[in-house]
Amino acid sequence: MADSTFLTVDWAIDWLRRSAAVVAENRMALIELDRVIGDGDHGENLDRGFSAVLEALDAQAPATPGAAFKLAAMTLMSKVGGAAGPLYGTAFLRAATTVGDAAELDAAMLGAALGAARDGVVARGKAEVGDKTMIDAWTPAVDAAVAAAAAGAGPAAVLDAAATAAESGAVSTDPLIARKGRASYLGERAMGHRDPGAASSALILRAAANAAGAGA
């Protein structure tokens, strides 16, 4: 089957495992991005957080996608340490709340969960599109996911659209002046550098698409 109609907890767990792998793989790249315009801890913090997510998944098998998201939320909030912890943690927590106890997620629910996750990041970080933050990846990703779902795409295609838009969104942060976080102290010196949070968001959303079999 090229694109199943529903995603289950197996997908959610696979997504989290793939996220941990891709974050570990890009640890140095994220550290380098953050070293230039932040405090250099993004890659290390996120790697520590997702490593803890792997341990949590080994220790207890979540029964639903929502339970997997909630486990990730609590773990990331406790273990990441920097701003990425509460931001990604809130994203997963809001997604968990949105999908509730559902055993299977369809394309529309995925769009809604991504939207709730993005809204959580906005609420927590108080950032807008153009501030050179994670939101610059998340907002186009949500718009693309919702549009794809409305056009009748299946879950994998929805996630693929989201990941592609997030990747473009991350690139779009390169010329921006940061208005949030440590990078905002740098003014124009932040121009020409990609926001590490937007970069990691794109990696994690691509992992979601890959776990759903997009492009396979």
Partner: peptide, 14 residues
């Protein structure tokens, strides 16, 4: 600073 506020807000949300 910043992320301390976010962690506190997250705790309250939990």
């Amino acid at each position: 600073l910043g992320s301390a506020v976010m962690t506190a807000e997250s705790a309250l949300e939990f």
